[in-house]
Every structure is written in C-alpha cells, then in structure tokens.
C-alpha cells in the first residue's frame, strides 16, 4: 500500500478552468491538467499572460473570491483544495504547500524581523513553543546560507540586500517543511550572479528535503538549471508536457518549437533570428479552436474549427496539436 501512495501524484490538477469577471472577462486558464509526483520539479514555462501565476495561485487558493470563477479539481496530498474551508486552508498553507515570489515584499512583512516571522509561522503551524520556533528560524537562515545568521534573525527585510531577502523568503517558506513548494519566478528580478546562487540553493534544498516543486519561469535557461519536467503554457492552456530533455531537444508542438528556435543564444551576428509572427491572443473569449492557429505556419482548417486533441505520445509526454495525432499509430 505504501508503494502505491509513493508513486501516486502529490499534486493532481484536472481540467482547471479560471475566469476573471468584472469590467472585462479574462479567460486566464482554460482546462489545465497536470500531475506532479513526489520529489520532482516541474517547470511551468510560458510568455507573459499565459496563465502561469494564476494556475499557481489557484493551488494556494489565493485568487480573489468575488471576481473569480473556478472549475475543475485540484488535489494536493490527497486533499481537495478547492473544497477546503478556512481552517483547513490555513493549515494547508505553509505546511502542505508554500509559495515564494519574484518580489519578496509579497511574502515578507516589513514591520517584523525575519526571525520573528519564521518563529511565528512555526508556532502557528506546528503548535511548537516559541523557543522551538526561534531555534528553527536560526536553523533555516543557516540552511539558506545567510551570513551571520544569528545576527540576521533580528534584521528587518529592508535592511537586507535583494539576494539576502530572497534567501530569507525561502527560509520562511520552507520553515514548516512543506511537501510542495510553488515558486513564481523567484529569480527573475535578481542579478545574474545572484540568480545562479539562488537557483543552485533551491536545487539543493529540494533534493535534501525531497520536496515537489512547481517552478514558474519564462526563461528556458532557468528551467534547464532546475526542472525535471516541463509544461509549456500558451493562452491559458498547456500545449506540451514532457521531461526537460524532451522539451529542450525534441519539442513537438509548433509553439515551443518556435520559442526554442527564436532564442538569440548562439545566433550569429548579422544573421536573422527565427521568429514567431504575431502576438498571443487576447483572452476575452474561451478558446474554441487552437489558440496558436493565427501564428502557426502549420495551421489548417481543422485547427480553426475545434480544440486540438491532447495526444499522449508516451507516459507523461502530452502534446495538444493535430500534428501530434498523426505521428502516433491509431490503436
């Protein structure tokens, strides 16, 4: 029995659909399905507005209640996340799932010291004593390699440099040993020489703690440094999922193929870059055909008429395109 629970996905998203209502309607997420086993890092890769952050926020139930319509199911560690009541939700956040952001200001409270914030979180989530919380805070700051950790317990966020604040935010997020870490572009705002330090730190902590991580990024290089699997999003849908190597070396969907080809890395000066013509669609309507069709050089009539099928090429390797269908034998 324990074997089965070890291999069952820790995070399972099925047909998640999220629409923001209000002044104008935004169909931000349109039928996303994902499965993440224990101890793996999944990269959510896509351009701005493709729905990466909204998907993550749904996993933490952080979306504004009033103006959001959500359907589908989200299961994390056996719990039906969309059905959790307030008490269950507060136990769920921090202990089961925790989140880090591009901007540490979203996670760190400016009026409390770093030490107090971590202590408080441990006391609240684990019912631990203040002394235990404080000891954990020190342990965490050392774990994320903040120099002179003991002294930094009493520092306020604004007294730290950008890289240090990012480390403090990671310490806070991991203090209660969550099973799943959601990372929303945590290194995008950092300088190059600091970004790589934080990426390597996250990689190491993930391995040591055996966490599952969903890592949102628009930078394929960052994904290469940290992810095991990659899901590529376009216009609120996942258009391709596979292992990191599958996606980097052998993407099948025309969108990730174009994205990988248009990179300037290694391009010769004076040589024209490959481009994907056009721009992503506005999300004012729910997709009823392939969202990429207006920009796709392979588009045909059927692509404009109905949603392309999600074709499973091999276990864990899914491509949402009519072309993929033709490459697998009909069974």
């Amino acid at each position: 029995m324990s074997l089965a629970s070890d291999t069952a996905p820790l995070v399972e998203i099925d047909n998640l659909t999220i629409r923001f209502t209000g002044e104008r309607t935004v169909h931000a997420v349109n039928g996303v399905s994902l499965a993440l086993p224990k101890g793996q890092v999944l990269g959510l890769l896509g351009e701005s507005g493709s729905g990466k952050s909204v998907t993550l926020r749904a996993l933490m139930r952080l979306l504004p209640k009033k103006r959001t319509q959500i359907s589908g199911t989200v299961r994390v560690a056996g719990q039906d996340v969309l059905a959790l009541d307030d008490d269950a939700l507060s136990a769920f956040r921090g202990r089961t799932v925790s989140m880090i952001f591009q901007e540490p200001a979203l996670a760190l409270d400016p009026v409390y010291t770093i030490g107090d914030q971590i202590t408080e979180s441990v006391v609240r989530h684990e019912g631990a004593s203040h002394a235990t919380g404080r000891a954990r805070a020190l342990e965490m700051l050392e774990l994320v390699r903040i120099p002179s950790a003991k002294r930094r317990l009493d520092a306020y966020p604004h007294e730290m440099s950008g890289g240090m604040r990012q480390r403090a935010m990671i310490a806070l997020a991991l203090a209660c040993r969550p099973q799943v870490l959601l990372a929303d572009e945590p290194t995008t705002a950092l300088d190059a020489t600091v970004q790589i330090q934080i990426l390597l730190l996250l990689r190491e902590l993930q391995r040591e703690m055996g966490m599952s991580v969903i890592f949102v990024t628009h930078d394929i290089g960052v994904a290469i440094e940290i992810c095991d699997k990659v899901a590529v999003m376009y216009a609120g849908q996942i258009v391709e999922t596979g292992s990191l190597r599958d996606i980097v070396r052998d993407a099948r969907h025309p969108y990730p193929r174009g994205l990988l080809a248009s990179t300037v890395h290694g391009a010769k000066r004076g040589q024209r870059l490959e481009t994907i013509p056009g721009t992503p669609p506005s999300l004012s309507e729910a997709p009823s055909a392939c969202s990429f069709a207006p920009r796709c050089t392979f588009a045909r009539q059927v692509c404009r008429e109905r949603l392309p099928p999600a074709v499973e090429l091999s276990p864990g390797r899914v491509v949402r395109c009519v072309l993929a269908q033709e490459t697998v034998p009909v069974t």
């Binding site: 300088d191 970004q195 790589i196 330090q197 390597l200």
Partner: peptide, 23 residues
C-alpha cells in the same frame, strides 16, 4: 558574469556558483 549564465544544455548544468554574495 559569463559563468553565471544559466546552462543551455540539460547535461551541462551549473554545479558551483561562479561567485558568492551580492554586489
């Protein structure tokens, strides 16, 4: 700065940060 660029090949990931600390 050049060594801090993320890898472009999954089999050539960065193993050690080229420098430590912030500017």
């Amino acid at each position: 700065l050049l060594a801090a660029m993320p890898a472009s090949d999954p089999d050539q990931r960065t193993e050690v940060p080229p420098i430590t600390g912030d500017p």
